[in-house]
Nucleic acid binder design. Sequence first.
DNA 1: GGCAAGCTACTCGGATACACGGTGTCCGAGTGCATGGGG
DNA 2: CCCCATGCACTCGGACACCGTGTATCCGAGTAGCTTGCC
Lengths: 158, 158
Amino acid sequence: MSGGVEWALHCCVVLTSVEEPISSAKLAELHDVSSSYLAKQLQALSRAGLVRSAEGKAGGYILTREPASITVLDVVEAVDGPGRAFTCTEIRQRGPLATPPESCTAPCPIARVMIEADTAWREALRAISIADLVQDVASTSGPLAMGRVSAWLTTKQA
Amino acid sequence: MSGGVEWALHCCVVLTSVEEPISSAKLAELHDVSSSYLAKQLQALSRAGLVRSAEGKAGGYILTREPASITVLDVVEAVDGPGRAFTCTEIRQRGPLATPPESCTAPCPIARVMIEADTAWREALRAISIADLVQDVASTSGPLAMGRVSAWLTTKQA
DNA sequence: GGCAAGCTACTCGGATACACGGTGTCCGAGTGCATGGGG
DNA sequence: CCCCATGCACTCGGACACCGTGTATCCGAGTAGCTTGCC
């Protein structure tokens, strides 16, 4: 899976601590990653409607929804695309013993297992929201960690 | 994920119907796929110990274990490698507000969610065995489907 | 007829090109804010 | 003092190269089985 997903998730978490737009440059400096490439991930989030972009001098990105209503799956699908990891090529319909198409109304057992596993994976990601991540961060890194991030984002004038 | 996984799984299913070695060329013709590339996947299965290769004139591949003791996850890991889909790059330890390494004993919440989802995915694949797939095929394509495959593999002298 | 040596043909296995998607970067179009002048 | 036109600096957005992994292929090493000659 794409590595930019991790960046996008971290950005969503820190964006919960502020209410004003934050530019991609600031987010990149905070995470020490490529500003240009991070911009691409943020664009993907913008296209998916998870964040709203504000242009102009004091522009940047803001979360459009409540953190509790944004799931990790939303971010993953926005960045990596909604496509499934496994795609059935219908091997059973090929070769000398091909199964006739009229008998292939249901997906083949192999595809069924893969779809089932993919669904389990997605459900695990859907069960966690950005708000849950923020709470975990507070529990792990101390309650004031998010406050420090917020202060840095709002004061630092890069 | 690699597309060769689908081929490998189909091969494992059809290999349950015979007890003599089947060459990669026959398996490729049966599925109408590239013989050379399929050979690579079978080599991966051989390295993982799921199948045993027999060289010589009447050589080929045989399953080493009972179909019920081979899980779909075994095949997936053999072909795609045991690596996880998501790799945490420890972003929290970078940038101006980096978390000190001594505070990073536990994985960060984001990585935790990803690992959890990955585990759920793996458990779903581990729950299904090749024998289960064979039974599903019998239920779907009729009880004699596997017999026809077995007959084709043993009679056809390509 | 039985047996052994040699040969053949077929197999696996790894080493070798090609292609596509992810990775990383850059520059142009657009917009809100700050400034300076006028009323 | 208030308002408006102007300029500017900063922003996003998409278009452009680079690299690694997956995809596809080929040829060489090795072996089991068949053939043939001999005892």
